[in-house]
């Protein structure tokens, strides 16, 4: 009996010892998936949609060859986000549903929540019935809180949105991705304050977005902040300067929607000042932007 107890104890100790060891053999498909995902996400940040699509599709193939549900769900989520960002909503929705399905089946809670809130945000933007989550626990990554915040904001549940944005800002990580999430959270808070007619807070938040965008390099968010601050400030010279700066950034980014929004505001300003020559010039530029937008569609 004693010998049996000793043997059992030794077996248990051996099991403990082996469980702490890492598998010395790396799955090449897992490594490939991570590499392709990383490059695909980098291409997405540069808005190189076709390149990103090709890389992320290959990442999905590698994940499937690795037969790892965690990687497969991540690959589907990345593809879904890519399609939504590139404007192909149908493909995006299908991919996000695949991500959610895999994550649910394998009980991958974080991945499931990420896909679920992203789908809800998509539905909300399309004017469809969308899931309304309560404030999520603090154990989720910042990007999930950010999506939940934007979703709640669009659903006019401002308290939930504010709490979610605060959770993003409380994140202690300091890498570029974390900083970008924080800038987006400040931009979200600025829009939230503007919606609630709290112009002072909105101005403070847009100032934060401008400063942080300059540090990290987030030109689109900087342009959004300039556009919003132009709506909030009264001084016409400063308003015009902000709009001109925003327009220059949108032009450099070839963001037609941004150019159109800014030109409308500049026209409103010119009309208010009775500057008909400037108004006509802006109208011509707006017409050109409109033609490009139609051609792109």
């Amino acid at each position: 009996m004693k010998q049996l107890v000793v043997l059992a104890a030794m077996l248990m100790l051996a099991a403990c010892g082996s469980s702490g060891q890492k598998n010395p053999v790396e799955n090449p498909y897992t490594e490939r998936m991570k590499e392709l995902s990383s490059n695909g996400v980098a291409a997405m940040q540069r808005e190189r949609w076709l390149v990103a699509e090709r890389l992320l599709e290959r990442a999905l193939q590698a994940a499937q060859l690795a037969n790892d549900p965690d990687l497969i769900a991540t690959a589907w989520y990345n593809l879904g986000t890519l399609h939504v960002s590139a404007g192909d909503v149908q493909k995006g929705e299908a991919a996000l549903k695949r991500a959610s399905g895999v994550a649910q089946r394998h009980r991958l809670e974080i991945l499931n929540m990420r896909a679920k809130v992203a789908l809800a945000l998509l539905h909300q933007r399309q004017g469809r019935e969308a899931w309304q989550p309560d404030v999520l626990g603090s154990g989720y990554p910042a990007d999930i809180h950010l999506i939940a915040a934007r979703l709640s904001q669009l659903q006019l549940r401002y308290d939930v949105a504010r709490q979610e944005y605060d959770l993003v800002l409380r994140n202690s990580e300091v890498d570029r991705a974390a900083m970008l999430y924080k800038i987006e959270a400040h931009m979200g808070l600025a829009l939230l304050a503007e919606q609630q007619l709290d112009h002072e807070t909105a101005k403070q938040e847009t100032a934060l977005v401008s400063n942080m965008s300059r540090d990290v390099g987030a030109p689109r968010l900087a342009a959004h902040a300039l556009l919003l601050s132009a709506k909030l400030i009264q001084d016409e010279a400063q308003k015009r300067d902000n709009l001109q700066d925003a327009l220059a950034i949108y032009r450099a980014l070839e963001d037609l929607q941004g150019q159109s929004d800014t030109l409308h505001q500049l026209m409103h300003l010119a009309e208010h000042n009775g500057d008909h020559i400037e108004l006509q010039r802006l109208q011509e530029e707006l017409d050109q932007v409109g033609e490009h937008m139609v051609a792109d569609q």
Binding site: K34, S37, V41, A63, D70, R114, D143, L227, G258, D261
Partner: peptide, 21 residues
């Protein structure tokens, strides 16, 4: 010891929020 690449489940794309005013 081992690279950072062996941790986690691959890079995750930033969400498509569209924070246009």
């Amino acid at each position: 010891d081992k690279g950072q690449g062996s941790k986690g489940g691959g890079a995750v794309a930033a969400p498509a929020l569209d924070l246009r005013p």
